[in-house]
Design a protein around this nucleic acid. Structure first.
Lengths: 197, 197
DNA sequence: CTACGATGCTTATCACTGTTAATCGCTGCC
DNA sequence: GGCAGCGATTAACAGTGATAAGCATCGTAG
């Protein structure tokens, strides 16, 4: 099975490249196997030789996105002071979402049905993006600048707030008169406030 | 045009009824014009005599959902004390989302493209659901229990947090070990904390 | 009472979608 | 040389939203 060899063929890589390109350009809803095939220069069914189905193909891109997000979070987490670090993490998360709308949508807004068969090892990798927030919270509790239940719960709670902000902005549901940089800062601040001691 | 007469024909009502039923039962992704037609007992194209397209049909259901949500928020808003009222509103919003997942998804998670032609008067109606939160905030500021920028901004910020909570729970992204009633309460509390003086 | 136009609904059709089955062509091996 | 296996293809299936054309029924004008 081609899925098993770590270094896929050139075709596999080309499929991923074109899919990424089409996703970013046209969005998930306008992504079709035939369009990908046309862009790659192969038949639609050839994609199925390298990916079980469309979901599996998207899962590979989600994994890429999670890795990109992780990189940006790691950069933000260099700040040693827990409070400033969590602030940087939160802003980095939101910025990633706004800067990569189509990526964000498949990463976090895909219907749970489409995620049912998301591979465990990819899921574990994605969870690091939560853990990095939990760590900042735990460190903050230790030095006495934060209060929270468990850091894991706290990280999830923070995530819900940040995700809601990104989601509503991407969905263009927030009044355009309000949805500026100041609004984002206010919402992020609001999400962080609850942890301050 | 049948769209113009306030009381549509029996067919129009039947289409709405069956669409609502199918949406709740199978979800938006599994909703098709042909399935609706089959359930109603008419041809698929007949639906286009009463609704411009699939989006317009969904818009009618979104409007219904907004009305239902509004009713539940109004009930929660009977509480006179602003702090308790906002708390009741937030919990009512989240409960509505969790109790009506498919409805919530079309109401708040539909791709902006699908909402581009959402009618202005329906949009204005939907905005009451934000205003009812803003009112509680404004009242709270007046009696000195809340602090916030403008109540409108505050309501939007609160909305982002609540929406994120509902979205992640509906998307089943929150660790099942965490996603219980206590977690919901903690997240809602967190979202409200920032307004307390 | 007949003829006509409008209205409501249908069938046929188009260009797509994800996915599977069957098939083709090529390469390496016995 | 012939054959197995593998990568890739074409053909096909069932379904999608949507449009165009056609059919039947009805109220009304002549």
């Amino acid at each position: 099975m081609s899925e098993n060899r770590p270094n896929g063929t050139a075709l596999r890589r080309a499929i991923l490249d074109e899919t990424r390109h089409l996703l970013v350009a046209d969005g998930y809803d306008n992504l079709s196997m035939r369009k990908i095939a046309r862009a790659v220069g192969c038949s639609a069914t050839s994609i199925y030789l390298h990916f079980e189905n469309k979901d599996a193909l998207i899962h590979a891109l989600i994994d890429e996105g999670m890795e990109q997000l992780h990189e940006q979070l790691v950069t933000a987490a260099k700040e040693p002071e827990p409070s400033a670090r969590l602030n940087a993490l939160a802003h980095a998360y939101v910025r990633f979402g706004l800067d990569n709308r189509e990526y964000y949508q498949v990463m976090f807004q895909l219907h749970p049905e489409r995620m049912e068969r998301y591979p465990v090892e990819k899921f574990r990798k994605a969870r690091r993006n939560l853990e990095i927030h939990a760590e900042a919270l735990a460190d903050g509790v230790e030095v006495g600048v934060f209060r929270t239940g468990s850091p894991e719960t706290g990280a999830h709670v923070l995530w819900t707030a940040l995700h809601g902000l990104v989601s509503l902005l991407l969905a263009e549901r927030v009044d355009v008169k309000l949805a500026d940089e100041a609004f984002i800062d206010a919402a992020v601040q609001h999400a962080l406030d609850g942890f301050s001691k």
